[in-house]
Amino acid sequence: MIELKTPAEIDRMHVAGRFVAEVLSEVGRLADVGVNLLDLEHHARGMIARRGAESCYWDYAPSFGRGPFRNVLCLAVNDAVLHGLPHDYTLRDGDVLTADIAISIDGWAADSARTVVVGTPAEEDLRLVRATEEALEAAIAVARPGNRLGDLSAAIGAVARDHGYPVNTEFGGHGIGRTMHEDPHVPNAGRAGRGLRLRPGLTLALEPWFARTTDRIVHDPDGWTIRSADGSRTAHSEHTVAVTEDDPVVLTRRESEHPASGTASPRS
């Protein structure tokens, strides 16, 4: 069932969204050559505890995972892209790191992800990151009353095609609100003009993710981490967005972020 939120409820989600943005900014700032993934995880845990917030990931046990998940961040490196299980790994020059986090404050959730390149970036990695950011902004731009869910999916898929990246539709965006995952599912490719009609109060986590040369995925033995099937590098961008009577509202926008600028997101 799809639950439409009132303006007051969207404001409460925005509180969670601003904090999610703060944590992701801090993780991006700290991610550097020589930093261990577990250090990033523990830093995020401290921020959440000090804020009195709750992690939506802790004890999460969906059918596809080997649960429960006992971390507050998903951290995925290089060919890993989704549900990355933080582990004892020290970041190296040129690594591509995706950080994903969902947090609940006073019963309302927000979810966001970003990919950064650690140390010296390769242009092909920056291009991949930019493509996910552009696809996310394209979907946000059509998150307006009267449009349809397929318009969001089509906007993401069109950017992927323009860049020459294949698209996996097994995992994509989703509704969000009182819980991290609500209806509807938002595939990262689809046909415009099809599907649910968007209405004010609909809140969605939109999350384009691409692998450079495949749309197939494999799971690590840890039961969580999802990788590109051919080992090609990956990137993932996500925001929680509210459909309103006017423009779409991005509830997890980072202060330093420059949407649709044509360059990869700043590290801060």
Rank of each mutant, 00 (worst) to 15 (best):
P208G: 05
L198S: 09
D246L: 14
L251D: 14
V249P: 06
I156W: 09
R227Y: 02
Y165T: 08
N147L: 01
L152N: 04
S261L: 14
S261P: 13
H219A: 14
L204P: 10
D215Q: 12
H258F: 09
A135P: 00
V249N: 08
G201F: 08
I156F: 11
H239I: 07
L198D: 05
H239L: 08
A154T: 12
A189P: 05
D230N: 07
R233D: 02
A158P: 14
A192G: 10
P145T: 10
G175L: 10
E182I: 11
H181A: 10
A155I: 15
L206C: 11
V218C: 06
V241F: 03
S153D: 15
E255W: 13
E133P: 01
H181R: 11
A205Y: 10
A235P: 05
L198N: 05
G231T: 04
W224M: 05
F210K: 02
G193K: 08
A141R: 02
G146E: 08
D246V: 13
T213V: 07
R161G: 13
A135K: 00
T179G: 13
G262M: 01
T203Y: 04
A155P: 15
G146A: 09
A139N: 01
L251G: 14
H219I: 08
V159E: 07
P166K: 10
E257C: 03
T225S: 05
A154K: 11
W224Y: 08
T169W: 02
S237W: 01
A138Y: 02
N147G: 04
A264F: 02
E133H: 03
P200E: 06
E134I: 03
L149W: 07
H174Q: 10
G201D: 12
G164I: 12
E257L: 02
G262T: 03
V250L: 09
G262A: 03
N168V: 07
P184I: 11
A189E: 09
D220Q: 14
E207F: 08
M180F: 10
A205S: 14
A160C: 15
L206I: 15
T225F: 01
G175Q: 12
G231E: 05
T169I: 10
D220M: 11
R227G: 00
L152Y: 04
R199Y: 11
V218F: 00
G201Y: 06
E134Q: 06
G193C: 08
A264H: 01
G190A: 09
E134G: 01
D162T: 12
I176S: 12
G177D: 06
N188C: 08
E182L: 14
T179C: 09
I140W: 00
H258R: 15
A141K: 00
M180Y: 07
T179F: 09
G223D: 09
V186I: 15
D222G: 04
P187E: 06
P166E: 12
A139G: 06
D162I: 06
V249T: 12
A260G: 12
